[in-house]
Amino acid sequence: MKISLRRIAKSYGGQCVFRSLDFEVEFEHTLALVGPSGGGKSTLLRLLAGLELPDSGEIRIDGDLIPSDEAGLRAHRQKLGVVFQAYNLFPHLTALQNIRLPLEQVHRLSTQEADSRAKQFLARFQLLDHAEKQPAQLSGGQRQRVAIARALAVDPAFLLLDEPTSALDPEMTAEVLDVIAELRTSEKPIILVTHEIGFARHTADLVALVADGGIPECSPATEFFDRPQHATTRRFLQRVLKY
């Protein structure tokens, strides 16, 4: 999978996140975005997801430009899967209905097809027993796994995960990370924003540091952690690995 950003500018209400970001990367399985809070990781992910438009500049994924009109953006969003920190699921629908909704309404599967596809994905993540539960009856880890199942069920071109474990306790974090690690080799390309440095090191092909509106370093995981080239990276790693 290949991503290229050219002269991307993005600000929110006077707060400039990117002034002029140029970034090109090609990876096979997993790209991890790490960096300090407010550095622009999530903004970058939302731009790739087509949830935000850059103020200027262009983004290409595998050579295709992300469109800037709402209809085009929607078509772009339909081709990928996104999982946020929390509250991904719709609280008034059961786990099964949550997965069926995009299959039926966006991808126009018949009720029967959607149902069997949704169950197939629930079964894959050992969630079939919880199919009829609403999100409030599920644990945090189960909710995130259902969200991942929903994102995968539509057969997306790639997955975008925005700190999928940051709202979970360590045990549930492990449960969700196991699922992501398992997807790594067999499945779609994943772009993952994460605070789990150890996980990034073990699972990602490439790790990119997003800080101060730029991407000063992007290298294979072992290199990134063992031989960081950039001073910002070293400072960041020092801080997060201190304890």
Partner: peptide, 10 residues
């Protein structure tokens, strides 16, 4: 997050 999720699934 609900609006975001709805937009994200298309």
């Amino acid at each position: 997050s609900q609006w975001d999720s709805a937009r994200a699934i298309g």
